[in-house]
Structures are given as structure tokens and as C-alpha cells.
Computed example of a mutant assay.
Amino acid sequence: MGRLTTHVLDAAHGCPGSSIKVELYRVEGAQLTLVASALTNEDGRCDAPLLQGDDYRSGVYQVQFSAGDYYRARGVKLPEPAFLDVVVLRFGISAEQDHYHVPLLISPYSYSTYRGS
């Protein structure tokens, strides 16, 4: 059975990104529907998949990471408005039986992602 997972790595500090708010939306045309919300744990991962079971289906999704809040909580001085406040990744799930893993590597001024395993 398929599932969607994520994790965050803080490239600026060389550690997992813990206590980062993650929100997952289903995208249908111009409408966003919130389907999951979580905080990353000490390892930068969510304790459970963001999507699985009957809710896991093909379509377009958007995951949002509250990176600015994370860096402010760490005491990092960010300009206002922050260059990267909320990192938004929009992606598609086409194979309902597959595990989709969407990791995020962040710093206050850059990010990178890929389809992991």
C-alpha cells in the first residue's frame, strides 16, 4: 500500500530540522484542501506518514514547510520579510501503490528537494 512521507534536514546547522510545521494540501484546480498537518520530530521526520490508506490516491499535492518559523525559533536573525518563510512544494502522485518520499534540505536562503525512497 502506498504512503507519503517527508523529512527535513537543516543544511545551515548540519542537523535534522525538528519542530517544523508541515501542512499537506490536495490541489484540485485552484482549490487547496488541507489533508494533513504535523510537526517534525527530533530526527526531522513526521511520526506518521502524511498520507496513507484510503486517503492516499493519485493527484496533485502541495506540501508547505514553515522554515522561517523554524529559523526564528533557533535564534537566526532573518530579514523581514524573510527570503524563505514558507517553502512550498507542489508535486504529483501517479502510482497509488508506491511510497513517495519528499525530503527537504533547507537553509535560510536556499532549499533542495527530490523524490526519495
Rank of each mutant, 00 (worst) to 15 (best):
I106A: 13
G2C: 02
E23T: 12
D85A: 05
L89G: 07
F65R: 07
A73L: 02
H101W: 08
C46G: 09
A30G: 08
V27P: 08
G2I: 03
T5E: 09
R72Q: 10
G17N: 05
L51P: 03
G44Q: 06
A38V: 03
Y71L: 00
G68T: 01
Y56H: 04
V86Q: 09
R3K: 15
I106E: 10
G59A: 01
F83V: 11
A95W: 01
G44V: 03
V60P: 00
D55V: 04
P103H: 08
H99V: 05
V60N: 07
L89S: 10
Y56L: 02
R57P: 00
V86I: 13
N41L: 07
D55K: 13
D47W: 00
V63P: 01
L51D: 03
P108R: 05
Q97F: 10
E28L: 12
L105V: 15
S37M: 13
R115N: 13
L24G: 10
G53Y: 10
L50K: 05
E80T: 10
G44D: 05
S112T: 14
H13F: 12
A11I: 11
Y114K: 15
H13K: 09
Y25Q: 02
S18H: 08
N41R: 07
V86G: 06
A48Y: 12
R57W: 00
Q62E: 15
D47C: 04
G2E: 06
G53H: 08
Q62P: 11
S37K: 13
L89E: 11
P49I: 05
P108M: 04
G17Y: 01
R74Y: 04
V22E: 04
A82T: 09
L32E: 14
A82K: 10
Y71V: 00
T5H: 02
K77S: 07
D55R: 12
R72K: 14
V27Q: 07
T40H: 08
A95L: 05
D43M: 07
S107K: 14
A36Q: 11
G68Q: 03
F91T: 10
G92P: 12
H7I: 00
Q31T: 10
T113C: 13
H7K: 03
P16Q: 09
D69T: 11
V76H: 05
Y111F: 15
E96M: 06
D55T: 09
L51V: 06
G14R: 10
L32S: 05
C15G: 09
C46M: 11
L39Y: 11
